[in-house]
Each structure stands twice: as structure tokens, then as C-alpha cells.
């Protein structure tokens, strides 16, 4: 089914980096495999070498420290759902994870893998952008930290160089009193990719970060929302996004959905804060 490849399962981050430096683009990182192996089966990727990173203890890290939550590259979506700490501090990530794929896929699929696949519809991409997350990237030269907004560069394209890989994504705990939410519209209620998704974080000072996914080449952070939560925000959304027609919906439908979901999100977050 797959063409032959070599399989390595290193125990240390430095070994992965060395393998990548040696094999370049003929090597791919294997985490959950739920995008990679499907792509290989379809002939979209033909790696000579797979580097399985699940044997590296550091990459299982999912423990908040000093107000920052690191999510290691081997943390699965269900690992996230099982974390009481994530549920308490980042309800948006739980809401997002629950809408992703099926239980058995979530047991394998990783949060970082969802980012690295760099789909415009990546649900974790939208949620982590709304949280202002950053990725930590390893290479033979050094480690660098990149805001997630600079990581996505196009459809299935990221800012990663050929010998670079993501070891974790980090999000800071929003201040107490923050409101956050994730909405997803798909063709069916069960597992499906997003036709449009929407993630937002409302800080206690009224500043709103709104992200829309599957409406442009990358997830879009709608800038200039400030504390304007009235009708003006829909105009901003229309200006910021550039949806296309595909099997999941037409551009026109996506434009309407994006505005509707934005309105619902703002209502949800402001109703929450009135109640709070």
C-alpha cells in the first residue's frame, strides 16, 4: 500500500534534528500519522524516511508552568481532552478538540500535527491563533520561537525551513475574567472538516481577538476589532476574508456563514461576561 521507506524512532530531540539535516525533504516527521499516512497513501508525499517522534518523553509535555501551557509535538488531541488543567485554564481548546475528527482519530492525531499540516481549515490553528500562541522550532542551528500568525504562509504551507521542525506550541493563560469560544460549521454533525470555523478570546479590558478559518489561504485573525462588537465587526470580517468554492461550500455561503458565526460568537462572549 505504501512504497517502502525507512523508519527511525529516536529518543532525543537532537537525534530528530540530525536525521532531518541529513535527509532533508526526503524525511518526514511521524506523530499521529492521520494526515501524513493518508497523504502517502494518495501519493501526495513519498518520503524515504519516517522519523517517529513518539518515543521522546519531552514531546509529551502538557503541564502549565508560570502561566504558560506548552503542548509538546507528541501530545494527542485526546491527551488534551483528558487534561483537567487544560479544561480549567483553556476551555476553548476543549471545545475545539471535541469537534475534531472521531475518537479513534483523536487518539492518534496530535495538536502540533494539526498546525504543521497547515490546512486553512485546521481547527486547532484557529483556536491557538485566538490565544496568541507561539511555536518552538528546532533546527541544527538553534531553537527559535515564532508567533503562530507568522507560521501559516499558505494552503498546506508553513514557515518551516527544510531542516526545521516544531517541537511544541505554547499558549499563555488568559487573565482571569477572559471569555473564549470556538464555533464550527460542517456539513454533518459528526466528524467532518470545517466549512467555516471561528475562535475568539475576549479579554476583561474588552479587547477581542477573532479568528476565522477555512475562509482564506490561512486562518485569518480579524484585526482592528478592538472593543467594537457591534455591526462594524461584520464589515471587518467581509474585508478580511477571501473564501473560495469547494466541496464543503460556496464562497458566498462561507461569506454569510463567517458573518453569522462572528455575530453568534460576539453574542455568546458578551452574554457570558454579563452573566459572569
Amino acid at each position: 500500500m505504501f512504497p517502502p521507506f525507512r523508519y527511525f524512532k529516536p529518543k532525543r530531540i537532537e537525534e530528530v534534528t540530525a536525521f532531518l539535516a541529513e535527509h532533508g525533504e526526503s524525511a518526514r516527521i511521524l506523530a499521529g500519522g492521520t494526515d501524513l499516512l493518508v497523504g502517502m497513501r494518495r501519493g501526495e508525499f513519498t518520503p524515504d524516511v519516517l522519523i517517529d517522534i513518539k518515543g521522546i518523553p519531552e514531546l509529551q509535555n502538557l503541564s502549565a508552568d508560570n502561566g504558560t501551557l506548552p503542548i509538546g509535538a507528541a501530545v494527542s488531541v485526546n491527551d488534551l481532552l483528558d487534561s483537567a488543567e487544560v479544561a480549567a485554564l483553556f476551555p476553548i481548546l476543549i471545545q475545539t478538540a471535541l469537534r475534531m475528527a472521531s475518537h479513534q482519530i483523536r487518539n492518534r492525531a496530535t495538536v502540533v500535527g494539526n498546525l504543521c499540516n497547515a490546512s486553512p481549515a485546521a481547527d486547532m490553528g484557529a483556536a491557538l491563533l485566538a490565544l496568541g500562541a507561539r511555536v518552538t522550532i528546532a533546527s541544527p542551528r538553534s531553537r527559535r520561537v515564532l508567533p503562530l500568525g507568522e507560521f501559516f504562509t499558505g494552503v498546506k504551507k508553513s514557515a518551516l525551513g527544510r531542516d526545521e521542525w516544531v517541537i511544541s506550541v505554547e499558549a499563555d493563560t488568559p487573565p482571569p475574567g477572559s471569555r473564549m469560544g470556538f464555533l464550527k460549521q460542517a456539513r454533518v454533525r459528526g466528524p467532518d472538516l470545517s466549512t467555516v470555523n471561528c475562535a475568539a478570546v475576549l479579554l476583561p479590558d474588552g479587547a477581542l481577538t477573532l479568528v476565522l478559518g477555512a475562509v482564506a489561504e490561512t486562518p485569518v485573525v480579524v484585526t482592528g476589532c478592538g472593543s467594537d462588537k457591534g455591526n462594524g465587526i461584520a464589515d471587518r470580517v467581509r474585508e478580511a476574508i477571501a473564501p473560495i468554492d469547494d466541496v464543503r461550500g460556496s464562497a458566498e455561503y462561507r461569506m454569510d456563514l463567517a458573518c453569522l458565526m462572528t455575530r453568534r460568537m460576539v453574542e455568546k462572549l458578551t452574554a457570558d461576561s454579563r452573566r459572569g
Binding site: G33, L50, D52, K54, I105, N107, R108
Partner: peptide
């Protein structure tokens, strides 16, 4: 103990 799809799991894993 965790459910996975065997078609997207390598035997070596």
C-alpha cells in the same frame, strides 16, 4: 486500551 484505526497505524509502531 485506546481505540485507533489500524489502517493509519504502522505495524512497527
Amino acid at each position: 486500551g485506546r481505540s485507533v484505526t489500524a489502517c493509519l497505524t504502522l505495524a512497527v509502531e
